[in-house]
Design a protein around this nucleic acid. Structure first.
Lengths: 210, 210
DNA sequence: GAGATATACAAACGATCGGTCGTTAATATA
DNA sequence: TATATTAACGACCGATCGTTTGTATATCTC
């Protein structure tokens, strides 16, 4: 027997803790998040964390892992329902916008907070977060290449270049919507990518007009 | 007499402290920055800070002010040397790229770190940083409008929309260059804005080809 | 049922946090 | 020259940081 109530309960609370950690980290970052506050938020004691993780960094690494899974399920997976090509590319962008506007995470985007926090802080967390960004950009880039292969994007497009643009225009919505002009940021972030794709697409009717 | 050695020395050390604070905050944020480490970095005692500022938040606010001045002098002012219109708009973008690639600040961009840190943290610092972002976007928007008035940008352009795109494509260079692909981020960030402007400009010869 | 294992906790650790207090020495004001 | 004022400091405050230790207890293995 490996289905044991004790370990199962451990796994459940482990997941609950990680969910809270990702949620809080989207607001105050993974370092800004303190074990004391995380304990309060989860209704446990902070010493209990050390039954699950060796130290704070291990918890942070697992939180990144959890956030990657969440992002994959909520943003990447839905986009795969759209037909490959330029429509899937825009579906990916819209899934991201929905993730933000739905308020899935109180801070908007876990990766925005954490990457800004760790881009200058060498260590395991930085490496893990860097890999997450590389994988994400790689996925966008592959969708661009596939759209080109399908003849749905101009042949002169540089996939890495366009992937950078799509990511940058999407990511900065988080900051602008919270710090500057609220809903207008979503309009700008959506339209920027949409018009860029339409301009590069031989058959713009594949995409909404606006 | 108001030119007094004592107060002058105070002003000098005040400026030196703020410069260090902005520098450190570009790496670890304005909250991540602790008074103890700032004291070590400046070779002073942390209790000395309270001769200049009432509390940490006042120091943070002055640090933002200092960073705004630095940004204005190093990025905004040089762009004004270029002729108004689309050339000035691109000169502004290039001045920003130079600010990043020259390594003026060890963390790349003070505002990127601090805005990501405070976008979800209500208070005076958030308000001040929000205003800085508003002013910066307003400046870009005015340059767009001026370029349109000069007939150097397509009449269908929405200035706020284009300002968002220019800022987003420039800002994310900081993150990508540090966390992902180094120099390639500069190429992507530069080319994205350049090609966007060229596509909207009736006379692309005003801008470099690549 | 016995013994090992694992979850979770309270209490406490040294370090560091932002901040206070009282003092010293240099300068400004009179 | 006498008197405020000021920059700057060392010592210390309570709170919180991440972490360690020891313990109680529920579950799993045998």
């Amino acid at each position: 027997m490996t289905t044991d109530g004790r370990r199962l309960r451990g796994l459940r609370s482990r997941e609950a803790i990680l969910e809270q950690a990702v949620s809080l980290a989207s607001v105050e970052g993974l370092n800004g998040l303190s074990l004391g506050r995380l304990a309060t938020a989860t209704g446990t004691s902070k010493s209990g964390f050390f039954s699950h993780w060796q130290d704070k960094e291990e918890l942070q690494l697992d939180a990144v892992e959890w956030a990657v899974r969440q992002w994959t399920e909520a943003v990447v997976a839905p986009s795969l329902l759209a037909p490959a090509g330029v429509r899937r590319l825009f579906a990916l962008h819209e899934a991201r916008l929905r993730f933000y506007s739905d308020g899935v995470l109180p801070g908007g985007c876990f990766f925005f907070s954490v990457q800004a926090e760790f881009d200058d802080r060498p260590g395991a967390v930085r490496d893990r977060v860097s890999r997450a960004l590389r994988d994400w950009l790689g996925f966008i880039r592959r969708q661009v290449s596939e759209a080109m292969a399908l003849g749905e994007l101009d042949g002169s497009v540089d996939p890495a270049q366009l992937a950078y643009e799509i990511d940058a225009l999407g990511e900065m919505i988080v900051l602008h919507s919270r710090l500057h002009d609220g809903p207008a940021a979503f309009v700008h972030g959506r339209r920027a990518v949409l018009q860029r794709l339409r301009a590069l697409c031989p058959d713009p009717s594949l995409l909404p007009e606006d």
